[in-house]
Simulated scan of single mutants.
Amino acid sequence: MRVARLIRIASVMTLLTAWPVAQAQALLFERPLSQQKVHDGFGPVIDVHVHGRIESFVLDTGSSPSLVVSAAASRLRSRAEGPTCQQPLLIWFGEERPTAVPCEVIPTIPEFAAAKLAGMLSPQQLAPHDLVVLDFPSSRLFALHAAVEPFDVFRKLYPERSSVRLERVGESIGAMLVRGAWGDRAEVLVDIDTGRPYTQFARRYLEGAPVGGSSATLSATGERSFNQQSSQAQPLRIGSVVLAPIRIRTRDEAGVVAGIVYEGSLGRDVLKACAIGIPPRQERQVYLACR
């Protein structure tokens, strides 16, 4: 066990050479994102141990609680715990004690069954008292025990990038709502959603912007939607960070979570260049460090 832990620490130190030794020693877990072809298009996928089995889950920051598809529920069931999700799902990242993740069982999504995906994990729930980092450029998910200011720990991981600390709006752990805007339009609430392949805004927010074409997208929950795309690219601003100009896709309606209406979702087309930091839950913040 000690050797395995040292190997994990060494791999992260190689990946992030800017880490001080003290921070490497604070590593709680580290997992590479799946590179399997069958998982392409679903967003970030990790393999974890559940009751002695290796299971694949999509990491979805827009999902709360974590979700298990019914086709996988029987094999994830523990006799001592009763039916799947009657108690929190016990996930092992390699350490001696498992992480207890609240979950719900949902109907099987055909695309998930074909890709042998057990469901969706909410990264916000994997280490609620510590700092979880989903780093797209390095294809890694890891967590650190942040004994000091979590944002200081996060920004020191990425000295070559401009890190930003964003205030989260609302109390739902199932949506990381922050403020943002496209072009010169008004600032609205935007959900940081790794389960969506593209950044989208409600049609009413893009009213007057020239749009064209029509294409179908599939969210991590299997929801298929048809949308158009703006004819022109405009800078996308999230908090105080202005990202590269992008052509925004539309969706029919605004989203609603815990009674809060949000106009847009920041998808993987933008997030693929970023590391997302999720500090302890009481901080009510989220961090971004984009290339």
Rank of each mutant, 00 (worst) to 15 (best):
F201W: 13
I109M: 09
A26K: 12
L27E: 02
A289W: 02
T108N: 13
S63C: 14
W92L: 12
V133S: 00
Q234V: 02
L33M: 13
F42N: 03
I173Q: 15
K156P: 00
A115S: 11
A10D: 04
D252K: 06
Q125M: 06
A233T: 12
A10Y: 03
W182D: 03
Q200T: 15
V58E: 00
A289K: 04
P137M: 12
Q234M: 10
S172V: 01
P44Q: 03
Q35R: 13
E187H: 08
P280W: 07
L76V: 12
F93W: 10
A181C: 14
F201Q: 04
V286Y: 08
Q25L: 15
P197Y: 03
I7S: 07
G264Q: 14
R224F: 05
G255L: 14
Q200W: 07
A113R: 14
E81Y: 05
A24K: 05
L131Q: 01
A216V: 15
R161L: 11
H39T: 02
S240Y: 08
G267W: 02
Q234A: 14
M120L: 14
V21D: 08
A202D: 11
Q86V: 03
E55K: 07
V286W: 02
G52M: 08
R291C: 10
F136H: 07
A258W: 11
H51M: 01
D191P: 09
C103K: 14
A209N: 09
T61F: 06
V45A: 07
I46W: 11
G195A: 10
Y205Q: 04
V58Y: 01
R203W: 00
H129S: 15
Y198P: 00
Y287W: 05
G212A: 06
T217R: 02
V169F: 13
